[in-house]
Amino acid sequence: MYLEIKDLTVLYDRAMVLNGVSLTVGKGEFVSLVGPNGAGKTTLLRAIAGLVKWEKDTLKGTRAGRITLEGSVKFDGEEVTNLPAHEIVRRGLILCPERGRPFREMTVLDNLRAGAFGCKDKKVVKENLERVYHLFPRLKERENQISGTLSGGERFMLTIGRAMMSQPKLFMIDEPSVGLAPKVKEDLFARVKEIYEQGSTILMTEQDVSFAFDLAGRNYVISKGHLVGEGTAEDLLADESLRKTYLGL
């Protein structure tokens, strides 16, 4: 398996956010992770990307730093559990964070350049930039605009583009649709599909179950830090109790 997570447990102080989560993503797969607010979706992606560990190390000795992190994350056959976040990025495991979080006081172009930090070959950076601009022509128009002034949809394009500049092998997208208008949402998911079809592996969390199930080949349902279901959209929808309790469909 490309990405293999075993018994991942995360506690913030004494609040258990993830409780022994195990999941896998195969190469070339599109996997979605759905579940209600506060289920632990974001924390799971943050833990995989090494941000929970970073938070724990950085805040060591403060109240907010009492974080427990157990379990193992294997990517492409290599144990990455204890690697620092910036090293994990170098191996091609890229997170596009919740709400995008662009560097708001920097221009669109500078944001994209920040995404290309790990890539020292200027030619490759330029190629990637072309690719991003091809996918999101709007970003080229706004190249020199301060990114704090972008609209919600543009901001998400920017952060997807920024993550693409880091040359992802496995692309983790955290709740792309939050706060977007339905029309923008549709367009956005079309782009995500395009990126997938160009040959990426994607692990995406999403609250909008119908969109997620449309796109993904396999899905996990998470609630209160536990995985409660796994399978294709048909399998999950066939299970009446799961559908009613967790998916709200």
Binding site: L51, E55, V89, P97, M106, G118
Partner: peptide
């Protein structure tokens, strides 16, 4: 560019490989 990124959002700078 990386320094400015860290100044703005340390956490996200990590995810850029910085």
């Amino acid at each position: 560019n990386a320094i400015r990124a860290v100044a703005e959002d340390r956490e996200i700078a990590n995810v850029m490989g910085i």
